Simulated assay, not measured.
Amino acid sequence: MADRPHGVPPTELADDELRGEMTHLHDTRHDTVLGGSEDALQTHTRRMLELEEEFLRRFPAEAAPDRRRTRAGSREEAGQ
């Protein structure tokens, strides 16, 4: 059996579809880690990374870390 792609390539998804796909994969991650086969986990991981990379490319401002979650931001907030 030939290896087939899983899902629509992320670059071809509309913004709302990309967000929906990411939500679904994040919702199913726990079950895949705990109960999926090794192949299922590898496929899930590959798809999740593809979607996340596309999200980061399209929405860099949304993916930027909160300043308070960085060392510099934490120090600034603490008055250091």
Rank of each mutant, 00 (worst) to 15 (best):
M1H: 06
A2Y: 11
A2M: 13
A2D: 15
A2R: 11
D3E: 15
D3T: 10
D3H: 14
D3N: 14
R4Q: 04
P5Y: 02
P5D: 01
P5Q: 08
P5S: 03
G7K: 09
G7T: 01
V8R: 05
V8Y: 02
P10I: 00
T11M: 10
T11D: 15
L13N: 01
L13F: 00
D15W: 03
D16Y: 07
E17G: 06
E17V: 01
E17D: 06
L18H: 03
R19I: 14
G20Y: 06
G20K: 07
G20W: 12
E21M: 04
M22S: 10
M22Y: 10
T23S: 10
H24D: 08
H24K: 15
L25V: 09
L25S: 04
D27Y: 01
D27G: 02
D27N: 09
T28W: 02
R29E: 09
H30M: 08
D31A: 08
D31T: 07
L34T: 12
G35R: 15
G35W: 13
G36N: 01
G36A: 06
G36F: 05
E38D: 12
D39F: 08
D39C: 07
A40D: 15
A40E: 15
L41E: 03
L41R: 04
Q42S: 06
T43M: 12
H44A: 00
R47Y: 06
R47A: 03
M48C: 13
L49I: 09
E50R: 02
E50K: 04
L51V: 14
L51M: 14
E52R: 12
E52V: 15
E52C: 14
E52M: 15
E52N: 14
E53I: 07
E54V: 00
E54K: 02
R57G: 00
R57P: 00
R57D: 00
R57E: 03
R58Y: 00
F59C: 01
F59V: 02
A61C: 04
A61R: 09
E62A: 08
E62M: 03
A63F: 10
A63T: 06
A63W: 11
A64V: 09
P65W: 03
P65E: 13
D66N: 14
D66Q: 07
R67V: 14
T70S: 07
R71V: 15
R71W: 13
R71D: 13
A72G: 04
G73E: 02
G73D: 03
G73T: 02
G73W: 01
R75F: 09
R75G: 09
R75L: 08
E76C: 03
E77A: 11
E77L: 01
E77C: 05
A78Q: 07
A78H: 05
G79A: 02
G79E: 03
Q80I: 09
Q80C: 10
